[in-house]
Structures are given as structure tokens and as C-alpha cells.
């Protein structure tokens, strides 16, 4: 059940330049699934719309972790919140990653840039279910946030654009450099990365579940702002446009035209 709530900030710290790590206390944690997101509302009314932010981790059915980049005024406001501050959120939103396809399989969990955070709760959920968890994460430079968390749940491969850590290049380069293989892919990251993954998955004939991002207004499927072109007729408008917020944000790569 979706709900708008006033949650409490439990902690916050900057874990990489302009990347913030916040834990919030909310009963929405009890229903949160990996790949879902919440909408976070700035208090400053000049910044009206909610900010969709992915769920990075869930703790004891009572707390959510969000890791986000300061990208504008709204996220700048959030980054100043300290322990005890209240924060308005709407959630939990979207369908999340279909984890059932990972049972007993060799998986790639791929994250790039600010698409890295939702991969953490996914890795945690798949630990003990998937056969072999290979976590391939891409960063700009040596600020490889969440790396220590990932080490707990699988084998971690890093790619950095500047080559300071791991493979120089992107996550696809890391796959090639380490001669990695998988039965199924789960990914979140910038559009060029997702396009490359879609192409790769088609070539090696494995399913890839990718989490998409788009500007949103409502977050609940009403405004039709955040659509993506689909191969099959969408069930809402019947015009080959799925709503990323409610039909996604995770889609099988072959179902969407990106």
C-alpha cells in the first residue's frame, strides 16, 4: 500500500563527493523491495515536485537507506538534514527487480554512477539464492562508494573512468577484462550503460532486467510524465508507452526501446 509519511532522519553522511548516505526511520521499510523507490519532498515550496530516489538498503522492517547525488536544489536541501530532522516521503513505489529469475543462477548485478545504490539491497536479497553473485560497479574515479557493503554479498569487480581503481573504462569493459559470464543480468545506471547492456544481453542471449529513470511528477502513474517506448502495447494507454514509475522502473531490456 502506497502512503505519504513524515519519516525521521536517523543518520546522514557524505560518502563520496556530493554523494550522501541517509538512513530514515519509516514503516514503509516493511514493504520495501529491491529496485523500488521512494519520492522525497523538499520542504522549500519553490521546489514543488518530489524527488524519486531508489532504495539502497532495508533494515529490520523499520528503516530505509537512500544514497543519492546532490543534483539540484531539492537534493541540496536533503543533504543538509541531520539526525532527528523530519522528511516527507511517498512510497514504496514501482515494482522492483524480479528476483525469482536469479534462483540458482549465475548473476551479474551491475550498477553505474548513481545507479549503484539499488544494487546493494538486490545483492543482499539474492545472497544465498543465486548461485554466483558477480557485482560489477562503475564509478568516475576512486570514490568507489558502497564497495565495502558489496564485498559482503558477492565477488566485486570495479570499473573506473579514470582507471584509478579496477578496470579502466565502464562496466562492460570490466566484464571483458575479467572474462565474466552470467545467466541473468540486473542493472541500474546511466542510459548509455543500459543500452550497452541491452545489446550485450541480446548478443549472448540472456535476460537483462534494467532499472530506468525519467523525470517524474506524481510517481504513482497518474501524470504520464515518465514514459518509455515499449515493444508490446502498454496496458494503461495502449500506445506502446509504459509508465516508468508504476510499470517499472525495472523492465526486461528486450521489452523497451531505449
Amino acid at each position: 500500500m502506497k502512503e505519504k509519511q513524515t519519516a525521521k532522519v536517523l543518520s546522514q553522511r557524505e560518502i563520496a563527493p556530493q554523494i550522501y548516505d541517509m538512513w530514515i526511520e519509516t514503516s514503509l521499510a516493511a514493504q520495501a523491495k529491491p529496485g523500488q523507490f521512494i519520492c522525497v519532498y523538499p520542504k522549500d515550496r519553490s521546489t514543488l515536485l518530489p524527488r524519486p530516489i531508489s532504495i539502497c538498503e532495508v533494515r529490520d522492517r523499520e528503516a530505509l537507506r537512500i544514497v543519492y547525488r546532490v543534483a539540484g536544489q531539492g537534493t541540496k536541501e536533503f543533504s543538509a538534514y541531520e539526525e532527528g530532522e523530519t522528511i516527507d516521503i511517498l512510497g514504496t513505489l514501482g515494482n522492483g527487480f524480479p528476483t525469482e529469475w536469479a534462483q540458482g543462477k549465475k548473476v551479474f548485478l551491475m550498477g553505474g554512477g548513481i545507479g549503484v545504490p539499488p544494487i546493494l539491497e538486490l545483492a543482499k536479497t539474492l545472497a544465498g539464492k543465486a548461485n554466483d553473485i558477480q557485482i560489477i560497479v562503475g564509478y568516475r574515479d576512486s570514490a568507489t562508494f558502497l564497495r565495502d557493503d558489496f564485498e559482503k554479498y558477492g565477488t566485486v569487480y570495479i570499473a573506473t573512468e579514470d582507471g584509478s581503481v579496477g578496470t579502466k573504462g565502464n562496466v562492460m569493459d570490466a566484464i571483458t577484462a575479467n572474462s565474466l559470464e552470467a545467466d541473468v543480468i540486473y542493472a541500474c545506471g546511466p542510459m548509455p550503460m543500459l543500452r550497452a547492456i541491452k545489446k550485450y544481453a541480446e548478443r549472448v542471449q540472456i535476460p537483462a532486467y534494467i532499472s530506468l529513470e525519467e523525470h517524474m511528477a506524481c510517481g504513482v502513474g497518474a501524470c504520464l510524465g515518465c514514459v518509455v517506448k515499449t515493444k508490446e502495447l502498454d496496458h494503461h494507454s495502449h500506445v506502446y508507452n509504459a509508465r516508468i514509475c508504476t510499470d517499472g522502473p525495472v523492465f526486461e531490456a528486450k521489452e523497451v526501446e531505449i
Binding site: L49, E214, H215, M216, L224, G225, C226, V227, V239, N241
Partner: peptide, 9 residues
């Protein structure tokens, strides 16, 4: 009606 390309908002 298909509507416009994104970004729409």
C-alpha cells in the same frame, strides 16, 4: 493518442 517524447515534465 501516443503523446509527446520525454522529458515531458
Amino acid at each position: 493518442w501516443t503523446g509527446n517524447p520525454t522529458p515531458r515534465v
